[in-house]
Design a protein around this nucleic acid. Structure first.
Length: 836
RNA sequence: GCGGACGUGGCGGAACCGGUAGACGCAGCGGACUUAAAAUCCGCUUCCCCAUGGGAGUGCGGGUUCGAGUCCCGCCGUCCGCACCA
């Protein structure tokens, strides 16, 4: 009799058994209720890291649990396989990006299989293969035909390190999201996806996503950034006009200046004949765009000498400035300044001595002068505002918009922060954009019959830039319309396009089209999506857009791709630093009671914060050796224990040891089980049923840490119970409860217990509701709200009985000292509170 | 600056609708088994005190309530997101 569970043998045995049985293959035609569980697919960097392990373990527990509760589960895996790292590897290691990527996929697939995930490998896909990206090109052409793809020249974010354009979402604090390089502005002809045409529905759709974290919904809401207000024209003293947008038309009588952005056409025009203005504009451009720089940047302006006429008073003119704090990208690139009610305008007005006039009163004050240095932006009543006087802010907004529209000089308008999605990338390792540039016919789509437009394999990476551009033949193509010599588009698609529809392709992947609508709709939307919060805006917004775009062109009747979203926390680890300030890794450090020392020299090291694992802090733990040592189940168990899944999980050696001990404890229980018998252990049976229900509830809520705690509790209870059929029966149930989390152990135990078939296909144990009701309860006895005693009484005991028992308590009698309580509160089956 | 989340033992964290705070795990302490170690098992483990009992206690200060980790008001702190968005 083996007394230890040996994962080295069991892991491989059961992984093969699942493979042989195709145990996790999803059947499109199954009559069972369908459940689509998906974790964000990985970029094939070469090795899986702890974040992957945690992410996929959570999804796996849910997928396995759903299978046990009678669902047909789709739980697929694939590879987000295009992207810059492959090109960087090509440059550094002289390997082809495709070869590098495919080798990485093979290595990572092996690692994922070694963790025993219940995945349908028959649906595996990689975005870098023509059978995937060719279908993506087809979808791109469909969107083009529908007018949702267009090309225009515009100022774009240029990453000088990656030598490519970036979307707005990919610029963080003025730096490229991958390279960290300061982004430059460049004018280029680019492909765009019309995500702004969906701004309204993407915003409204967030309200329907009640199973998404509020945080993510809020982030998307802010990103989309809807503002409603008034757009109107100011007539200028030189006979021209300038268009402005405001969300506060009510404050129009508080205006003291008009300001335009430094790159506003008006500024550009005036600068031609005004060297001082040109110099001012150049000076503003030199300023940085980082958070800190913007924070401290002084409001600066240049008085153009022009004036603008107030729309409600032909005799009232406002000076027109070019100002550094006005953004060309937002609204119309021009504003009117109301210093009393906008902080930036106030800073500006104080600096340049412009009038500061109060027009919204928070209470009694009606004087027009405004002395403070803090603008008032709250609610109130309009004052000093002619026909608006006495109105509330909201009513005044409506009144001004009404007049503007009535008199024809302005109209109510909605402005969005969201910009169209620029998808052109000047890179090789991506989906070729299926278009051809013809001198005679213009930009012509590649006919669908000619898809996929395949990436050429013979490319060089010895010089920076886009290898497709310098490929000798690839870009030369015949124009599909006139047949003349033409140039193939050499830009490729942003890899976020690839990840915008992979979940649809998982659900259905025919050879001759991107997906079969009817089949895809059976599975979609994804029932549970799990991934990191870092995709709150990027991937999750793009995928929502893509799904709605397919819906609009009649390809898919789904509006939202992910019904329920869960964002898991990171795996973290302590950091260590030597006195010299060098980061050192956990392998080189010896932890003691007092602190930590360097293993090699005994030198003391400082224990730093527990942080996200990163190469620079040297606190990365590679899952591979841990997996070799402890087996898949211990690693999986640790990933689920202790920390709530949405919070960070601090990795620790002690933690994985604890998980390993638990796996062995369960095995020892199984090892001692005899043949099924009749005698029950009433108390243990009750506990078991209570825990079946609790664990189910916890798994459904993704509260794995709580489920784990309950399983520890049950295990301890079984260990303490007297050996016999009752204990054995509880053990048989424990194994099924543990199966989603520690599946190899469970399969091994299943055999040991003499059961037939795979536990992966077994049913979740049924709960007997009668077993959930206790016939005795413990009641707390409080005096003045303080716990003084506990009583065990029959469940549902009448108030009078409980009250009498409480008063009879020795502790209570001593405290009450013979005096009757003034008041008695009885909460049935819970407590008695005696108020003295 | 704006928006959001969160503050519970030495640590990770439980605590349902306001009803016995600290489940469960880790670490620690004591013990058993062992020649010894590992493994395993048993017990203790919020703090304080005059210890079969009592007092304090969920960031701080108030409040509501018979009763507050939970609700309300005001602070403090940490983390996250956005950021000159008119």
């Amino acid at each position: 009799m083996a007394s230890r569970f040996n994962p080295r043998i069991a892991d491989a045995r059961w992984q093969k058994a699942w493979d042989d049985a195709q145990a996790f293959r999803a059947d499109d035609r199954s009559p069972k209720p369908k459940s689509y569980v998906l974790e964000m697919f990985p970029y094939p960097s070469g090795r899986i890291h702890m974040g992957h392990v945690r992410n996929y373990t959570m999804g796996d527990v849910l997928a396995r649990y759903r299978r046990m509760t009678g669902h047909e589960v789709l739980h697929p895996m694939g590879w987000d396989a295009f992207g810059m790292p492959a090109e960087n590897a090509a440059m550094e290691k002289k390997v082809h990006p495709g070869a590098w990527t495919r080798a990485n996929i093979d290595a990572m697939r092996t690692q994922l299989k070694a963790l025993g995930f219940a995945l349908d490998w028959s649906r595996e896909l990689a975005t870098c293969e023509p059978d995937y990206y060719g279908q993506e090109q087809a979808l791109f052409l469909d969107l083009y035909e529908a007018g949702l793809v267009y090309r225009k020249e515009s100022a774009v974010n240029w990453d000088p390190v990656d030598m490519t354009v970036l979307a707005n979402e990919q610029v963080i604090d003025g730096r490229g999201w991958r390279s960290g390089a300061l982004v430059e502005r460049r004018k280029l002809s680019q492909w765009f996806l019309k995500i702004t045409a969906f701004a309204d529905e993407l915003l409204a759709g967030l309200k329907t996503l009640d199973q998404w974290p509020d945080k993510v919904r809020l982030m998307q809401e802010n990103w989309i950034g809807k503002s409603q207000g008034l757009q109107f024209r100011f007539a200028l003293s030189d006979g021209e006009a300038v268009e402005v947008f405001t969300t506060r038309p009510d404050t129009i009588f508080g205006a003291s200046f008009v300001a335009v952005a430094t790159d506003h056409p008006l500024a550009t025009r005036l600068a031609k004949d005004d060297p001082a203005l040109a110099a001012f504009i150049a000076e503003c451009r030199a300023g940085g765009t980082t958070a800190a720089e913007i924070e401290t940047a002084e409001k600066k302006g240049y008085d153009t000498g022009l004036t603008a006429t107030h729309p409600f008073d032909p005799d009232w003119t406002l000076p027109v400035h070019v100002a550094n704090f006005v953004l060309m990208d937002y609204g119309t690139g021009a504003v009117f300044g109301v210093p009393a009610h906008d902080q930036r305008d106030l800073d500006f007005a104080r600096k340049y001595g412009l009038p500061v006039r109060r027009v919204v009163s928070e209470g009694a004050e009606t004087a027009s002068d405004f002395a403070a240095y803090t603008a008032y932006t709250g609610p109130g009543t309009l004052v000093n505002s002619r026909f608006l006087d006495g109105m509330a802010v909201e009513a005044a907004k409506k009144a001004v918009i009404g007049r503007a529209e009535g008199e024809g000089w302005g109209k109510g308008a909605t402005v969005w922060r969201l910009r169209d999605w620029g998808v052109s990338r000047q890179r090789y390792w991506g989906t070729p954009i299926p278009f051809i540039h013809c001198a005679a016919c213009g930009v012509v789509p590649v006919p669908k019959a000619d898809l996929p437009v395949k990436l050429p394999e013979d490319v060089t990476f010895d010089v920076p830039g886009n290898p497709l551009d310098r490929h000798p033949t690839w870009k030369h193509a015949a124009c599909p319309t006139c047949g003349g010599a033409a140039r193939r588009e050499t830009d490729t698609l942003d890899t976020f396009v690839d990840s915008s529809w992979y979940f649809i392709r998982f659900a259905s992947q025919p050879d001759d089209q991107p997906f079969d609508r009817a089949v895809a709709e059976q599975w979609l939307p994804v029932g549970q999506y799990i991934g990191g919060v870092e995709h709150a805006i990027l991937h999750l917004l793009y995928a929502r857009f893509w799904t709605r775009a397919l819906n609009r062109i009649g390809r898919l009747a789904i509006e939202e791709p992910f019904a329920s979203l869960f964002t898991q926390g990171m795996v973290t680890h302590e950091t260590y630093r030597t006195a010299a300030g060098q980061w050192v890794g956990p392998d080189d450090v010896e932890r003691t009671d007092k602190g930590a020392t360097l293993r090699a020299t005994g030198e003391a090291v400082t224990i730093g914060r527990v942080e996200k694992m990163s190469k620079s802090k040297k606190n990365v733990i590679d899952p591979a050796p841990i997996l070799d040592r402890y087996g898949a189940d211990a690693v999986r168990w640790f990933m689920l224990s202790d920390s709530p899944p949405e919070r960070d999980l601090p990795w620790s050696e002690a933690g994985i040891e604890g998980a390993w001990r638990f796996i062995q404890r369960v095995w020892r229980l199984v090892d001692g089980v005899g043949a099924p018998g009749a005698d029950a252990d009433e108390a243990l049976e009750r506990k078991t049923h209570r825990i079946i229900a609790a664990v189910a509830e916890d798994i459904e809520a993704l509260s794995f840490n709580k489920a784990v705690a309950k399983l520890y509790e049950l295990t301890t209870a079984i260990e303490k119970a007297a050996p016999g059929p009752g204990r054995d029966a509880a053990t048989r149930i424990l194994i099924r409860l543990v199966a989603p989390m520690a599946p190899h152990l469970a399969e091994e135990a299943w055999v040991q217990l003499g059961e037939q078939g795979l536990i992966a296909a077994a049913d979740w144990p049924a709960v007997d509701p009668a077993m959930l009701v206790d016939d005795e309860v413990t009641i707390a006895i409080q005096v003045n709200g303080k716990l003084r005693d506990k009583l065990t009484v029959a469940k549902g005991a009448p108030r009078e009985t409980v009250e009498a028992l409480a008063l009879a308590s020795e502790n209570v009698a001593r405290i009450l000292d013979g005096k009757p309580p003034r008041k008695v509160i009885v909460v049935p089956d819970r407590l008695v509170n005696l108020v003295a």
